[in-house]
């Protein structure tokens, strides 16, 4: 059903132009009044305190870490790792995250490899790795909790999902990786 308005409407519209304007002025002034009267009702605000996050983006078969680490001796020495995780995650982990001052076991717990730990020694689940990041990146964590840094999906007026810091930043090399852009729009031929 093709439509071609221009032929008839333009004629009609110019005919009824002024009548329409007068009537429309009347009707639009009514609708404005109704706006912004009531304040937001409390019940509209859904409790969103509980933070819903996706599971940690582990490589396949790497978790639980204790499967290997339980029987291994802990080596606290800072060193270049060989034959550690490359089989499972594609390449050996090389820290590029404040590496001069840090080593794996600042974040990963030496005794319980299935957990992270905070500076004061408290263990943190991988599901809550943002608490670890927030120790050194306080303002970012604050913004993330408000939905300003990072990303929320789901419902703007209901349940939201947050992405973990680790969904966007590899904890070992956190700079956000550059992306290939989608195609530029076509150029219009100049008339």
């Amino acid at each position: 059903m093709m439509k071609n308005y221009n032929k008839y409407t333009v004629i009609l519209v110019s005919l009824i132009g002024f009548i329409f304007f007068v009537t429309s002025l009347n009707s639009s002034s009514e609708t404005k009044e109704q706006k912004k009267t009531e304040p937001i009702k409390k019940k509209q605000k859904k409790a969103i305190e509980h933070i819903q996050v996706p599971p940690p983006p582990f490589s396949e078969d790497i978790f639980p870490c204790s499967e290997c680490h339980e029987d291994m001796e802990v080596n606290k020495e800072k060193r270049i790792l060989e034959d550690a995780h490359a089989d499972l995650i594609g390449e050996e982990i090389v820290l590029k995250h404040d590496e001069e001052n840090r080593w794996c076991l600042d974040c990963h717990d030496a005794k319980n490899r299935d957990k992270l730990h905070l500076a004061d020694g408290r263990l943190v689940d991988f599901k809550e790795s943002y608490r670890l990041c927030g120790q050194c990146h306080g303002p970012k964590l604050r913004d993330w909790k408000k939905g300003v840094h990072g990303k929320r999906t789901g419902s703007w007026n209901g349940q939201k999902k947050y992405l973990l810091c680790a969904n966007c930043h590899n904890p070992h090399s956190p700079k956000f990786k550059k992306l290939k852009p989608m195609p530029a729009p076509v150029k219009l031929r100049s008339k």
């Binding site: 939905g147 990072g150 990303k151 703007w156 966007c168």
Partner: peptide
């Protein structure tokens, strides 16, 4: 992918 876009209710 970077979470640069935010949306919501200005009255809330």
């Amino acid at each position: 992918p970077v979470g640069a876009r935010k949306f919501g209710n200005l009255l809330d």
